[in-house]
Design a binder for these strands. Structure first.
Length: 259
DNA sequence: TTTCATGTTCAGCA
DNA sequence: GTGCTGAACATGAA
């Protein structure tokens, strides 16, 4: 699940649960999510400290650790946060932050594509991983400049986190559908008008998804997200949705509505 | 049993 | 430098 709207919801979840509470103990049940860093580093950064000011860039969630840098989390394909009491440790919890009163914030990640990393130099961290401007923060000029120089399929450009960070397979398809742009269109050849439309539609799609809790079932009926099936119906024209593979991912679109 | 899955990264090649 | 393909990673669901 975790694309920008999901991670934004995790940010709010963190803010309403584990924020400002002293972390008594850090438990790592599988070190593979630490991305090569030692669990000792994570413990030293977090134990006895508190999390403040959670923020997000693209699909990365950060929280300030008082006095000593940040905690960075990426949720891969299946990650999430869960706040619970000691008796209900969720399955696939990989990192547990034990707080006061038997409460715990768990980083849960069944497929282990996600990462939990202590970070001192956030700027350097983002640069090293080539995380571009956040899709909700980037302005129209920067967006056009980034896309205007790209020659590959626009779907691939949206998936490229160094261009604009936050969209994954689902919301890239949704944005292209609602903007009426074919996923294989070349960004550098889009008219200024269509580029502007792509930008505003992207923002509207993400904003709406965040407001609705990033749950696909709660998205407007007019969205393509409900038709991600072979043989699915286009919510606009009723035609048949087509699936192609672009950038190694299943891409759904309506050949009638997207040109 | 096989295929597919919402993410990232890397090597190899055009 | 850009960008595509395929592979790899790990696990669960259909």
């Amino acid at each position: 699940m975790p694309e920008l709207p999901d991670v934004e919801c995790f940010r709010c979840y963190l803010a309403s649960t584990a924020l400002h509470k002293t972390i008594r103990r850090v438990e790592v049940t599988d070190t593979r999510v630490l991305d090569g860093s030692a669990d000792k580093d994570l413990r030293e950064t977090l134990e006895g400290a508190r999390l403040h000011r959670p923020w997000r860039q693209g699909k990365w969630l950060f929280a300030r650790v008082a006095g000593d840098g940040h905690l960075a989390m990426h949720f891969g394909m299946t990650g999430r946060l869960e706040y619970f009491r000691a008796d209900g440790i969720p399955r696939h919890a990989r990192v547990l932050l034990w707080l006061q009163g038997g409460w715990c914030l768990a980083y849960v990640c069944p497929r282990m594509f996600g990462r939990v990393v202590p970070v001192k130099d956030v700027e350097g961290f983002l640069a090293e991983r080539r995380v571009g401007p956040d899709a909700m923060e980037v302005d129209r000029e920067e967006f056009s400049r980034q896309f205007g120089s790209r020659r590959g399929a626009v779907k691939g450009t949206f998936m490229n986190q160094s261009v604009v960070a936050g969209l994954g397979n689902i919301y890239a398809d949704e944005t292209l559908f609602q903007a009426g742009v074919h996923p294989k269109a070349q960004p550098s050849r889009l008219s200024d008008k269509r580029m502007g439309r792509l930008y505003s539609v992207m923002r509207r799609v993400l904003r709406t998804a965040i407001q609705r809790g990033a749950d696909a079932r709660d998205m407007p009926r007019s969205w393509l997200i409900h038709s991600r099936d072979v043989g699915g119906e286009c919510p606009r024209c009723g035609g048949r949705v087509r699936r192609v593979s672009i950038a190694q991912r299943s891409t759904y679109y309506c050949p009638n509505c997207q040109r």
